[in-house]
Amino acid sequence: INRLSSALIRTSTKCINALDALRSLKDGLDQHPSITKEEKERLLNFISVARQEYDEIAKKEIQKAFVYSYEESAKVLFDNYLDNIEAYCNSTKLKDPITDEEVSPDEKLMRSIEEQIGVSENAKKSFREEILLRLSSYARKGRKFDYTSHERLREAVEKKLFADLKDVVKITTSTKTPDAEQLKRINGVSAKLISEYDYCPVCANELLKYVGSLLNR
């Protein structure tokens, strides 16, 4: 509590986030002469682990917010995946939208999505069949099946899209002079963080900048 208070009373601080708390905890260790060297190292290790976990959480939060701003792209990726797994499971061909020729299911596309959530080569067939069964179940009940209807598939689509957009995210979050399009994306992501994930405007902006620095490492 004392360390959080110390973080709050810093000049120009409007609010504190997880990084502020971790930094303050780390700085506070030097102010306790009674802590042994071994104990200090142990506590520093805990702080380091917490920082690593926070980094992953921060990237996931930005990932979700960015994917939301590219929701149409997520839908297209999802539809392509569904078309391909349906052809794969039914041992049929797909029609190329440009040449109108019959083509085999795009294994590279399917695996690029499935690998995002650790679906192995041996498990891919059962995973694809599971998705089609869920799709069929939704259809029978008159419900719409989209990429958010299956938790693991949603995660896979978001991770794949985020991986594809990584350079865009990196540039957008780290640029000091964003152009009109980048500014639009930043504002959209910030608005999503505020409305859906309960960030305040200050913390949303700090998170964007921090994740930008992480992606540039």
Rank of each mutant, 00 (worst) to 15 (best):
A123N: 14
H32S: 07
L183I: 03
S137M: 07
F78E: 03
I131E: 00
D96R: 00
T99M: 13
L82T: 06
S174E: 09
I117E: 10
S69I: 09
F162S: 15
E61M: 14
S137T: 08
Y210W: 06
Y199Q: 04
L29T: 00
R23T: 03
L214C: 07
L183T: 07
P97M: 06
Y138V: 01
K95L: 09
S48M: 11
L208P: 03
L43F: 11
R152G: 06
T148R: 12
K184M: 08
R140D: 11
P33V: 00
R134H: 08
S5P: 05
E53W: 10
I47Y: 14
S91A: 08
L29G: 01
F145Y: 13
L29P: 02
I113Q: 03
S91V: 01
L165T: 12
E121L: 15
E155K: 15
Y210F: 11
G142F: 02
T36D: 13
L207T: 06
S112N: 14
R42L: 14
S12T: 05
D55Q: 13
E196L: 03
S112L: 01
L4N: 06
V211Q: 01
A74G: 10
P97W: 11
C203E: 04
Y70D: 15
R3T: 05
E151Q: 13
L207F: 08
N90C: 04
D198P: 00
A21R: 00
E130Y: 11
R10N: 09
I131W: 06
A7V: 02
D100K: 13
N205H: 06
K14I: 05
N84Y: 01
P105A: 08
K37N: 08
R51W: 12
V119H: 09
L215W: 07
A163V: 11
L161I: 02
A87S: 04
E86F: 09
S48Y: 11
R134E: 09
L25T: 00
H32M: 10
L193I: 06
L109C: 01
Q182C: 06
S190K: 07
L4C: 08
Y197E: 15
T173W: 12
H150Q: 12
P33L: 03
S126I: 14
S149F: 00
S91E: 12
L165E: 15
T99L: 14
L94A: 00
N187G: 05
R51S: 14
G142T: 05
K125N: 10
D179Y: 02
R42S: 13
D164K: 14
K124E: 10
R152H: 10
E155I: 06
G212Q: 03
N122K: 15
R134A: 09
D179H: 01
F46D: 15
E61N: 12
Q182T: 07
A18V: 09
T11N: 15
L207G: 03
Q182M: 14
D198C: 04
V103M: 14
Q31R: 13
T173Y: 15
K159H: 10
Y199M: 04
R154P: 06
I117N: 10
N122G: 11
L19D: 06
R10P: 01
K75D: 05
I85D: 02
L153C: 03
F78C: 01
L161F: 00
K59P: 13
E41V: 09
Y54W: 14
L109W: 00
I47H: 06
E129N: 11
D198T: 02
G212A: 06
G118I: 04
